[in-house]
Each structure stands twice: as C-alpha cells, then as structure tokens.
Design a binder for these strands. Structure first.
Lengths: 174, 174
DNA sequence: TCAGTATATTTAACATGTTAAATATTTTGT
DNA sequence: ACAAAATATTTAACATGTTAAATATACTGA
C-alpha cells in the first residue's frame, strides 16, 4: 500500500468521524429566540415550489430565447389585447421599473410596440406585433406540453386546490 | 360652463365609451394556440402568493437593515451551526453566485466569518458571529409575530396543508 | 504516481427585483 | 383658471437571479 493510499484512507477516516449525527448549533441559540424552523417556512416553501416548477419551463424558454418575464408580458398582451403599462404590471406581477426595461427589450426585438395614450399622455399603450404573435405560436405548444405533464404527475384537482389556496393567500390583505 | 369643463366632460364621455366590457384580443389569436389562462398559471400564482407573504416581512426586515436573503443565511447558520457554502446554498435556495455576494456582504458587516475547510481546500466554512447572533435575536421576535398573525388569519392547518403540497411539488422530480 | 475527471467556489455578463426619487401629465378644489 | 395634489412612467442605485466560464482543489483509475 503506497503513501498516497494511506493519505486517502486517513482522509476517509477523518470524514467519517467528523460526520455530524445531528444538527449542531454549537449550543449557541436559546430556544425561545430561535427563528421558526426553516423547513416549514412559507416564504422558502413558496420559493422552492416556484423554482421546481420553473425548472421545467426555463430551459424550454431559453431555447426560444425568451426570459420568463418576457414570456409573461407578450403572453398577457396576446390574451388581453392593448394594455397600458400599469395594467400589465398588475397582471404580470412585474414592478414598474422592471417592466420599463422589459418593454424596452421587447420593443427592440420587435415583439411589441409602444405608443402614448391619446387620452392620457402619462400612459404608455402596449401592443403585440406579428413577430410577437409568431413567437407565442412557437412557444405555446411546448409550454402546454410541459404544463400538461405537470398536471398528470401532480393531479389536476390537486393543482386546482393549490391554486385556490395560493389565491386566498395572495388576496388575504385586500 | 367654461371651456375647461367642456374639455373634461368630453374626456369622461370618451373614456366611458372606450371602456372595454370584455377582454379584447383583437381577434388575433386562434383558440388552439392560446397559452393557458394566465390567472390559473401555477408559476404566477406561486409568485403572487410569495410576494403577498413577503410583503408582510420585507418592511420589518428593512427596518433592521437586512435583506430577505441575508436573513435566510444568518438564520440557517444559527439553526444549523457551521456549514460550508454548498450546504448553505441548498438549504437557503440561493444559487452559488448570489451566495458568494451575500457572504461577502455579511462578512463585511461582521455577521459571519469565512474559513477554508482544512480537510477540503475547496470548501468555505461559514460561522455566525456574536454580532450575527445579536441581530437574529433582534429580528426573530418581529418575524415570529408576523408569522403568527399570518397563521391566525389563514389558519394553521391550512398552512400545514399548503406546506405539504408545496413540498410535494418541489420534490416531484427527485 | 500522474493525467484526466469531478467538485466547490468565484467571476463575468446580463436580466430582474426593490426602493426612492425624478419627470411628465392629469385631476382636484377653489 | 390655477395652484396643489395625485397618477403614470422612468431613472438611479444597489441586491439578487441566471447561465456560462474560469479557477482551485480533490478524486479516480491505470
């Protein structure tokens, strides 16, 4: 047995001995002041779930060279017709400063057009273009396929239940 | 009636006439290719719910001058004891590049310390400092209070049900 | 032992999130 | 009609998300 093998073996032994059998918080925190268990935290659970779901969609969107938010915007625009920026912000849950940048890039790529509202000079009206409709027609089938697979694995009724609970949570303070 | 009043009245009339009674997609999209209804989209619903929940916590965290992610990191560090960056990344659901930056700022602010793992030179070990524990003790009570209020309004069992469903969704493909 | 492969972290580049402030326009009350 | 308040959008500044590539270290098999 060579010196190299001995070194490796020692390392293995060390790691085995050092493996923690239980969470070690160094006895530092007093129980009364401990924050809630991270694993049962609603914000983190929502984040995890969202990341898991988007993990299915993001690679597909990347193949079509659109970001998640760009996709949301053009999709809502196709669904609703002409909208101003504020309405889009509400529907897509994108804050105004982000939306300003997304609109700029979508306009540069020719997917939407901007125009000033004749009746209210503060408002910017958004419209989808032919190129925008084209990319929607390209992405939608892939999107539907992924969503359908998700429905089948998780169960359509369970997804509906989940959607209802999430909606209640989102509208609790309104 | 002055000219100004007439102008205002005309504008009101115009707006009333232009008010859409139903979604107007300009008859552009063929139904078969329409994307799913945005309002029943799981990714958006998860985003809305998360924003609604964080809307309760964020102002409080801002008062303590910590971001949501900084809070997650120091809280998990207090809960678990020494962790390396990879473990932290998994537990806090923060991608490695973001974590690098967050660790840097938390170290600059004196809440954590970094050290190289003696047994594996690639790994960076994180430890919470006295200042880190101090801020946890300052923030935790506020955090608990907000969470408790949320539990009372939404119902503890319903939150548990929701957490279970979110966990299933997050672990579907594992 | 050593080259090749795998892993942990960081850096880079760009997109978005977040808050506050600036700007342009409209609305309100008098 | 006009000053003051309200609203819509943009800009600014900083933090984080996201992917790919770079760097450093460890592991693997011949």
């Amino acid at each position: 047995m060579s010196a190299g093998h001995v070194a490796r073996f020692k390392k293995l032994i060390h790691r085995t001995l050092m493996t923690k059998q239980s969470p070690d918080n160094n006895g530092i925190m007093q129980d009364a002041l401990l924050p809630r268990d991270t694993r049962r935290s609603l914000p983190i659970a929502l984040l995890r779930a969202r990341e898991a779901v988007m993990g299915h969609f993001r690679p597909m969107l990347a193949l079509h060279d659109v970001t998640e938010q760009q996709w949301r915007v053009i999709r809502i625009l196709a669904e609703a017709g002409t909208l101003d920026a504020s309405e889009m912000s509400e529907r897509a849950f994108i804050l105004a400063p982000s939306l300003t940048r997304i609109i700029r890039s979508l306009e540069e790529r020719g997917f939407i057009t901007k125009s000033k509202d004749a009746e209210d000079g503060r408002r910017i009206l958004l419209q989808i273009t032919a190129a925008g409709l084209k990319i929607i027609n390209e992405v939608s089938p892939d999107s539907r396929m992924i969503y359908t697979a998700l429905e089948q694995r998780f169960g359509r009724e369970r997804i509906d239940t989940l959607l209802d609970m999430l909606d209640e949570l989102a509208t609790l303070n309104k």
